[in-house]
Amino acid sequence: MHTNEQGCESCPERSEGIFADLKPDELALISRCKTTNRYKKKQVIFYEGNVPYGVHCVRKGKLKLYRTSAQGKEQVVRLVQEGEAMGFKSLLTSDKYSLTAEVLEDAEICFLDKSAFFELLDHSPKLARNMLETVCHEVRSQENTICSYSQKSVRERVAETLLILAEKYGRKNSDGTIEIKTPLKREDIATLAGTVLESAVRYLSEFKNDGYIDLVAKEIKILKPDKLLAITQSQMA
């Protein structure tokens, strides 16, 4: 089902992304040119290897970005949520999409095509600055991931992945516990932690047996976030 087009001016998620703090005429241009669609779980926004044809901005919902190996195995690289934009880096570098974007939970995605995006970029220093900031944050995050892969044990990385999921998707309860309601598969959690399924499942079971987390189907409840944090910092002690 498509959505009634809502102007960008009133979009509550815009403050989180590259379109934050744009001028009214710039927002009007986006509103005029964008197309909003509602995607169901597992539907794909764009495929790895294709040329980019615009920018996709998440108004609602959650997605995963993954790369598929020659053996057909998915490697989840990044999770995307409300307010985040996808595809602008490939557009700027004229590269093909390096990742596939798949919907994890029903989503509303706004699309701005290439010519409208570049027209906007030509007139908006704020947009350019926002994009630079976003890319810098992503580079920092990827540096952390690389360090994590080389310096931390699998156990620490699984704990760290749970905390990242909690930060991104979690809902904090008054008792300090955090519920993560995201339909990520165990395989996705394993690839995010840079390990194989068996190891991820082993450490998830260990954390559950220790009372740090609870697992119900695909839902994860973090009962003791401080304990997980302590595990991730054990090398630093």
Binding site: M1, H2, T35, T36, N37, R38, Y39, K40, Q43, Y53, G54, F111, D113
Partner: peptide
């Protein structure tokens, strides 16, 4: 996908 608005 069915029920989507055309992007192109």
């Amino acid at each position: 996908y069915e029920n989507h608005k055309a992007l192109g």
